[in-house]
């Protein structure tokens, strides 16, 4: 749908069309481990999409592929990725440098590892602004201060001169968000940004991200393993399993009327509300497949409560079950019916 224009400048390109479009993305490590296996994902402008899945599902690898952050010599990436119409796959090193931080910015799970310990936080932000936009020290510092106020760091003037280790966990995460926003990116990629935080701090950061996304018109991809965090920030949710997106739709569609047995399993294995004391939790039996040894058929079939012969032979394509709601399952109707039944059963009330 887009023509690659590798050498065109980044900012004015294609004012319409999706912010990020990923087509048939596969990522293979060391020639054996196929961590991502045919992912299609479209992020519309101003939208927040959550990629959820368990460890090894390929959600972070997908996110990193958008900025081509996976180690070049060990990774084989296939498929197409465009950011604002620009083909990321064909970019030179120089073009990638311009893309990273300026058009697309990323925040990570552990700010203490992502920030440089030997420079003050303010210095790291002004450096990014000066490098990308050629501003002078004073102007860059003024923008950094503005950013600190925006992410609501208390006494921002003083905090600009703090080193990462002098800040608390929540404040460091705010500083990293400020750093990510330093060059006014259009796309924000967040890799488990609240996982390492305490509960009372996590909700503050989730609300901050939601607010910034709306105010700045950011397009956001938010990787998380926590359905609750996804619901708090995302318009759409894509559920990943074994390197594939198995279900994608609006947050309402995925959480309230899931059509994939894996999504249903995730929802019903949560240890909340639903339980009678002393009852057992619903579990998904078994464990995720070995990605170096993929078997034919649906990767979830060995753990699925609905699997039939066909599931073990053929990979189900992603089909729309409702407008904007796609599911890759041969038995999605039966799965949806099973979920409605569980909801109706008194134990799951």
């Amino acid at each position: 749908m887009t023509v690659p224009v590798p050498s065109a400048p980044l900012s004015p390109a294609s004012p319409t069309g999706p912010a990020v479009a990923i087509r048939n993305l596969s990522v293979t490590f060391g020639g054996r481990v196929r961590a991502v296996d045919g992912v299609d994902l479209v992020l519309e402008r101003g939208q927040a999409v959550a990629l959820i899945g368990e460890s090894g599902s390929g959600k972070s690898v997908t996110l990193r592929a958008i900025m081509r952050l996976n180690p070049e010599n060990k990774t084989k990436i296939e498929g197409t990725i465009t950011v604002a119409g620009q083909d990321v796959m064909s970019m030179s090193k120089k073009e990638l440098t311009r893309l990273r931080g300026r058009a697309v910015a990323m925040i990570f799970q552990e700010p203490l590892l992502a920030l440089d310990p030997v420079y003050t936080v303010g210095r790291q932000i002004t450096e990014a602004i000066r490098r990308h936009e050629g501003l002078g020290e004073g102007e860059a510092r003024a923008r950094a201060l503005e950013l600190f106020e925006r992410v609501r760091i208390p006494s921002p003037q003083r905090r600009l001169d703090a080193y990462p280790h002098e800040m608390s966990g929540g404040m460091r995460q705010r500083a990293m968000i400020a750093l990510a926003l330093a060059c006014r990116p259009k796309v924000l990629l967040a890799d488990e940004p609240t996982t390492a935080l305490d509960a009372t701090v996590q909700i503050q950061i989730l609300l901050l991200l939601r607010e910034l996304q709306a105010e700045l018109g950011l397009s956001t991809i938010f990787v998380t393993h926590d359905l609750g965090a996804a619901v708090e920030v995302a318009d759409r949710i894509a559920v990943m399993y074994a390197g594939r997106i198995v279900e994608a739709g609006t947050a309402r569609q995925v959480v309230l009327s899931p059509n994939h047995p894996y999504t249903i399993g995730l929802l019903s294995s949560r240890a909340d509300g639903a339980l009678v004391k002393g009852s057992r939790l619903e579990t998904i039996p078994g464990s995720p497949p070995d990605l170096a040894n993929r078997k034919p058929g649906c990767p979830f079939a060995p753990r699925c409560f609905l699997a039939v012969d066909k599931c073990h032979r053929e990979v189900p394509p992603a089909l729309e079950v409702a407008p904007g709601h796609a599911v890759a399952c041969w038995r999605s109707d039966d799965a949806a019916a099973a979920f409605r039944e569980r909801l109706a059963a008194p134990a799951a009330a």
């Binding site: 966990g169 929540g170 509960a199 909700i203 503050q204 609750g228 949560r270």
Partner: peptide
């Protein structure tokens, strides 16, 4: 602590963080 838990209801998302700042 209880109201800091993310909501699982897309129609009823958390509006205000119950506590400000870090412990």
């Amino acid at each position: 602590l209880l109201s800091s838990m993310p909501s699982l209801d897309p129609d009823n998302r958390t509006q205000v963080a119950p506590l400000a700042g870090d412990p």
